[in-house]
Amino acid sequence: MTLVVRDSVTMLGRQLRHMRRDLSTSLILLAVPIIFLLLFVYVLGGTLGDGLDDGDGGRAAYVDYVVPGILLITVASAVQGTAIGVAMDMTEGIVARFRTMAIARSSVLTGHVLGSLLMILFQLTVVLAVALLIGFRPNATAIEWLAAGGLLTATAFALIWLAVGMGLAAKTVAGASNMPMPLTLLPLFGSGFVPTESMPTALRLFAEHQPFTPIMETLRGLLMGTGVGVSGWVAGGWCTAITLAGYAWAKRNYDRDRTR
């Protein structure tokens, strides 16, 4: 057990070094949610805000509405880095070396997961800071903030495992970087940018039942005090399900005979 912890810490250290050396990738992935945020708030927000439930809230109301969706885009964009990192490891031969060493096998993936998690928490902090700067005004209590942080961490954890699975399944690094792309757009096809009621029926049904919507609704409820209701449970369920599926997929791909 201590061996597993020790090797995992070593691999986490390796991962943090990688991220420091490859800051440009992290910065590009961080730019995605910030661009979405500025675009939607400043270009579209004035009009979209007036269309929200309360009537003529304009841009100020829209910032408050859109932040949960932006936070999910932050996570979805960041896990692209996870998939790329895992795929690079697999194609570079270093993992083959690790496999010929008497170390805890899982530590390679644990290093990726923990490294990505720290990176995403950092990116979420940056994006939240930008949101606050441009007028996001949450009214959450300390406990609600804590719950929101917990849910974001759980979401990040789930999507990271999914991305690890993608990175292992991809044949090339380029392939691995494309696979998580749809996740970045998924908040748009949910309640992230406009209420689902305004969508045509087929799209609305998808939007209301896709995994990101309950997560965004829960975040909105926690941060803006609009009530969480049953979304909280559904969100937790989705996070658990995605984590388990992603983990199982990653494990199966990782254990597979990877010789050419």
């Binding site: 070593t10 390796r14 990688h18 570079e92 031969g93 270093i94 083959a96 690790f98």
Partner: peptide, 27 residues
């Protein structure tokens, strides 16, 4: 110890860091 046909070094790390990484993994 194994040295393959396709070199298995960590390109992000320096030569010394690569060796120290191995050292840590060998405890």
């Amino acid at each position: 110890g194994v040295t393959g046909q396709f070199s298995a070094v960590d390109s992000y790390l320096t030569g010394e860091e690569n060796l120290l990484l191995m050292g840590r993994l060998h405890h």
